[in-house]
């Protein structure tokens, strides 16, 4: 069996996984909203920049982004902590996907909502932020939460650059205990405990939205 010290190490590692995920949710979400707004902007340059950003990020593996953030910057002479590099990569990765998901939601808001807001003499800025964006985000809640589950699982890639999150730590412990079944079962349970509430929440929201749009 595992020692209490080893179990404790896994629990601490789970906190790093959760921390990395929360950074991706919050900062990635903030940048993602900016990207989504640029994607639907009337300004052609902003649209082009955000489009290119999304294409590049979605067209390269997260693993490679992690390596680039860590080794790339190190080679250029910046010393960077593995966790910082992993956070940066997670933020870039998640912002591109959030941006694309929310762009779809924003565009799915019916044109009549714009008209109703315009006829109440709201400024274009107010129409967008008070009426369109909240509804667009609401429409995209199920895919958003679904993607959040992916984020939690994909933080495991930070292990390749030496972040002591759950996957990395479990490999270390396995190397010293040779109890792969016990170690990785426990790790699977820990991941599941983080992902399941999100998946459950996503399903619930989807049901709720389906009722609202009946």
């Amino acid at each position: 069996m595992l020692t209490s010290f080893q179990i404790q190490a896994l629990l601490v590692a789970a906190l790093w996984t959760a921390g990395l995920s929360l950074i991706a949710f919050s900062l990635g979400g903030a940048v993602g909203l900016l990207i989504a707004v640029m994607r639907v902007s009337a300004n052609r340059v902003l649209r082009a920049i955000s489009f290119t950003y999304i294409q590049i990020v979605q067209g390269t593996p997260l693993l490679v982004q992690m390596m680039l953030a860590f080794f790339g910057l190190s080679i250029l002479g910046f010393s960077i902590e593995p966790f910082t590099a992993a956070s940066a990569a997670m933020v870039i990765y998640s912002s591109a996907y959030f941006g694309e998901i929310w762009r779809g939601g924003i565009l799915a808001v019916p044109k009549t909502q714009w008209e109703a807001a315009e006829c109440l003499a709201l400024h274009p800025f107010q129409r967008f932020w008070l009426i369109i964006v909240p509804q667009g985000l609401r429409i995209s809640t199920p895919p958003t939460v679904g993607f959040m589950v992916q984020i939690v699982k994909n933080t495991s890639l930070a292990s390749v650059i030496g972040v002591a999150e759950l996957t990395y730590t479990s490999k270390l412990i396995n190397n010293s205990t040779f109890q792969p079944f016990t170690v990785f079962s426990l790790v699977a349970v820990l991941y599941f405990c983080m992902c399941y509430p999100l998946a459950w929440w996503s399903r619930k929201l989807e049901d709720k939205l389906n009722v609202a749009h009946r």
Partner: peptide, 20 residues
């Protein structure tokens, strides 16, 4: 147009309330 909308209200067949 905005100045006009301060003086004129419109109601649509499909209500167009803000659902959120």
């Amino acid at each position: 147009l905005r100045a006009l909308h301060l003086d004129v209200g419109i109601v649509f067949q499909s209500y167009n309330l803000f659902p959120h």
